[in-house]
């Protein structure tokens, strides 16, 4: 399968820091791709290179298999930056129309598509309102519409749910799934791991300008598992000493054990079964992305937000 987007050895150095230091990754078409990292890891710089705002110092970006041409390909990308912005004094309809036309849509196509989206997200009555009259959540929805209205191949969303209430969050989340189902590829940048686990297929984790993890969500959780199992009992847990495991935590009706090196989960289960306790469940505990994130990022000096940002 041809990748929609491929980044090869991207580098971008600013005067005082290596914002992006030799990062490569590829995004499969139709997938939801998570770009993760702590504050100041280089996510925004990376995204700005993909959206043609910055030129990389070195490295290549391939878009649909061809070298990325910022002037032409930006029309096929929709980008919602973390710091959102709209012209406050403009009417909402005109604003959406303007941004859509800048993405290459004709006036009539833009009008038609915007109306469709406004109907879908229950914003029809907003057309003649001004942006400054909108609440934060409402302008977020408008921003989302302006990002996706031109049917981009690649949609880049930086923290799309910040500032949204749970209801609107779900509305947007459903639309993201819909867009992916209809063939758009979504690059999703966040540090809210529970959302990533729920939405993303594939993730890349960056820290201090370097890529430190590149895997599907499933692979990542497998890769970082620690051989932990939870055994549920009907009643008081009966756990004898055995060389194949050590007890990590004892709970009311269950225990968490860690399998010792050289043993398999079957050995553990056999040992437990012989003791005659009534076992009701036997599950492997996989680490959450949050755990993985913290494990990988923790210990690195408190990110880079206090560095001089002069470019």
């Amino acid at each position: 399968m041809n990748n929609l987007l491929e980044a090869r050895n991207l580098k971008k150095y600013f005067a005082t820091q290596k914002a992006v230091d030799d990062i490569s990754f590829s995004v499969a078409p139709g997938s939801i791709f998570g770009l993760l990292g702590p504050n100041g890891a280089g996510k925004t710089t990376l995204i700005r290179m993909i959206t043609g705002i910055f030129f990389p110092d070195s490295g290549d970006i391939l878009f649909e298999g061809k070298p990325f041409d910022a002037l032409k390909d930006v029309e096929r990308i929709g980008y919602m930056p973390e710091e959102r912005g709209l012209y406050k004094k403009m009417k909402i309809g005109e604003q959406a129309l303007y941004l859509a036309q800048l993405k290459g849509l004709s006036h009539s196509d833009a009008t038609r598509l915007i109306r469709q989206w406004f109907v879908k997200l229950e914003m029809e009555s907003w057309w003649n309102k001004k942006v400054e009259d909108l609440s934060k959540g409402m302008s977020q929805k408008l921003q989302f519409v302006t990002t996706v209205v031109h049917n981009p191949k690649l949609i880049i969303l930086d923290e799309p749910f910040s500032g949204l209430d749970p209801v609107n969050s779900n509305v947007i989340k459903d639309e993201i799934f819909n867009l992916a189902k209809n063939g758009a590829t979504i690059l999703f940048s966040t540090h809210r791991m529970e959302q990533v686990e729920e939405i993303c297929d594939h993730i890349v984790l960056v820290n201090k300008g370097k890529k430190i993890l590149d895997a599907t969500v499933k692979e990542a959780r497998q890769q970082f598992k620690e051989g932990l199992f939870r055994i549920g009992f009907d009643g008081e847990p009966i756990v004898p000493d055995h060389p194949s495991y050590s007890v990590i935590k004892k709970e009311e009706q269950s225990v968490v054990v860690k399998i010792a090196e050289g043993y398999t989960s079957n050995t553990v289960l056999t040992a437990l079964l012989q003791e005659g306790g009534a076992i009701t469940s036997y599950n492997e505990i996989l680490p959450s992305l949050n755990d993985i994130f913290i494990e990988l990022v923790e210990g690195t000096p408190a990110t880079r937000q206090f560095q001089n940002l002069t470019a």
């Binding site: 043609g52 002037l71 919602m80 930056p81 912005g85 012209y87 406050k88 941004l99």
Partner: peptide
């Protein structure tokens, strides 16, 4: 300044030079 403080600049420069 308005474009910069409204943070629309980044949206704009992702569409035009």
């Amino acid at each position: 300044m308005e474009e910069k403080t409204n943070r629309i600049a980044e949206v704009m420069v992702s569409s035009v030079r």
